[in-house]
Deep mutational scan, measured.
Amino acid sequence: LPHTAVCLVCGEAGKEDTVEEEEGKFNLMLMECSICNEIIHPGCLKIKESEGVVNDELPNCWECPKC
């Protein structure tokens, strides 16, 4: 993702460097949905019932829970 990318919900950049544990890092890193192209911190999504499908081949790419 470009350095200028920010979260659609909170308007902040990736914050994964501020935590140690892997789950915390994931919730604070910016992810781009391969379907709707929205860039968001997974932790900013209010959807709890399902998780997005992470694409292991492309960094910061997933199918968000909304899609």
Rank of each mutant, 00 (worst) to 15 (best):
L1K: 04
L1S: 10
L1W: 04
H3Y: 05
H3F: 04
T4W: 00
T4P: 00
A5V: 02
A5M: 14
V6P: 09
C7P: 02
L8G: 02
L8S: 05
L8F: 09
V9L: 09
C10M: 02
G11T: 04
E12S: 06
E12C: 08
E12H: 01
G14E: 04
G14I: 04
K15P: 02
E16L: 06
D17S: 09
D17W: 03
D17K: 07
D17Q: 09
D17R: 10
T18E: 03
V19N: 02
V19C: 15
V19Y: 05
E20R: 12
E20W: 04
E21W: 04
E22F: 00
E22L: 11
E22W: 05
E23W: 03
E23T: 11
E23A: 11
G24A: 12
G24N: 14
G24L: 12
G24F: 12
G24I: 10
K25M: 06
K25V: 03
K25C: 05
F26I: 12
F26V: 08
F26K: 06
F26C: 03
N27S: 09
N27P: 11
N27T: 08
L28Q: 12
L28C: 08
L28P: 08
L28K: 14
M29K: 11
M31I: 06
E32T: 12
E32G: 10
E32Y: 02
C33V: 00
C33S: 01
C33P: 01
S34N: 10
C36Q: 01
C36N: 01
C36M: 02
C36E: 01
N37E: 12
N37Q: 14
E38S: 10
E38Q: 09
I39E: 06
I39D: 02
I39S: 09
I39P: 10
I40P: 01
I40E: 02
I40G: 06
I40S: 13
I40N: 14
I40L: 08
I40Y: 06
I40F: 02
H41G: 00
H41R: 00
H41I: 00
P42G: 05
P42K: 05
G43P: 03
G43C: 04
C44Q: 01
C44R: 01
C44N: 01
C44S: 01
L45W: 03
K46M: 05
K46S: 14
K46F: 07
I47H: 06
I47V: 12
I47E: 12
K48I: 11
K48P: 08
K48C: 07
K48V: 06
E49S: 10
E49H: 10
E49Y: 07
E49V: 13
E51G: 07
G52L: 08
G52I: 03
G52R: 13
G52E: 11
V53H: 05
V53F: 05
V54I: 14
V54H: 01
V54F: 14
V54L: 09
N55S: 13
N55Q: 07
N55E: 08
N55Y: 04
D56K: 14
D56V: 09
E57S: 13
E57A: 13
L58K: 14
P59Q: 11
P59R: 12
N60F: 14
N60R: 10
C61Q: 09
C61K: 12
W62Y: 05
W62M: 04
E63C: 10
C64M: 00
C64G: 00
P65H: 05
K66D: 10
K66Q: 03
K66N: 03
C67H: 06
C67R: 00
